[in-house]
Design a protein around this nucleic acid. Structure first.
Lengths: 154, 154
DNA sequence: GGTCTGAGTTGGTTTTTCCAACTCATGTCA
DNA sequence: TGACATGAGTTGGAAAAACCAACTCAGACC
């Protein structure tokens, strides 16, 4: 999904999907959030075809999600690795939302494959809607409106 | 993305992507969250090819995101319409996460095309990570771990 | 010089997406 | 009654993306 469908290039959702909406992209980011950085790690853990992996890594680098660096293992030549940028790390919001939705509405009989925790206290975390005063708001009360840049008619 | 890539069928993210990861799916859900229900509304607002729209609506119905109903306008015959289920409505979590990420890391020069507000107070909302005691946690401190059902090795 | 390894490329097939044109069942209007 | 309109799709064929297996390439190590 390289080009934004609909809405020209205005909608945040469509523009977010431009960067991470292609097949495999978010799974690569998930694995990066787990600390993976190498071509071979992504390939082996995800089972992604290598040409697609090459293409996705390039898209994610171009989109400012990953940063390409070099590393060198003892006794090996220099090789490429991929590290999340700040923007890439911030995609934990989107990924956590998917984990949370999946846990609630599409649970696996095998249990959770990903859990989200506070890196320090190790306690599990949830995503919640909050107002300006930080008071929680139920997801049922949330409304989506076209913003100032929307071309939608209502 | 009908079949889950990688991880067999375990990972919540991959399973969430099974339902909403195909091109256009999330945009249809976004428009449904805005209140749209008809084939022609989705087609006209999104500019999606009609055969793809047919296929996506079927996938979303099969996935429990949309419910197919009938409606009848005065002077017209009965026709189909599509309404979010509870699970579908709950995808506002994922969509809000994308809106929020897009606003912060990939803003449009034209401004926001979607805004998220409290349906009653009309105040803007944000998504936030919270611990069990509802105390906020910075996104920087969030860790993702493979859960009990993960096949990953570390 | 021969072999190994990580990180890709390349060629060819399969699957999706896209687009335009067409269908189908009902309803209105003359 | 027949001509036309409308929403909701189908269908056929072209273009793009994904998939797979086999291959390359450069440096390390023996």
């Amino acid at each position: 999904m390289s080009k934004t469908p609909g809405d020209e290039v205005r909608c945040q959702i469509a523009r977010t999907l431009d960067v991470v909406g292609e097949k495999w992209s978010l799974l690569i980011v998930r694995n990066a959030l787990r600390g993976q950085t190498r071509f071979s790690e992504f390939r082996d853990q995800l089972g992604i075809p290598t040409d697609i992996l090459t293409a996705r890594l390039a898209t994610l680098v171009a989109g400012g999600i990953l940063e390409k660096r070099s590393y060198r293992d003892a006794g090996s030549r220099e090789r490429a690795s991929y590290h999340l940028t700040e923007a890439g790390h911030a995609l934990n919001l989107v990924i956590a939302a998917m984990v949370q939705w999946g846990d609630e509405y599409n649970p696996s009989p095998y249990g959770a494959a990903s859990i989200v925790i506070d890196a320090e206290s190790r306690e599990p975390l949830e995503l919640e809607f909050v107002g300006a005063d930080r008071s929680p708001v139920s997801g049922n009360d949330v409304a989506f409106l076209p913003g100032p840049a929307s071309t939608d008619t209502w």
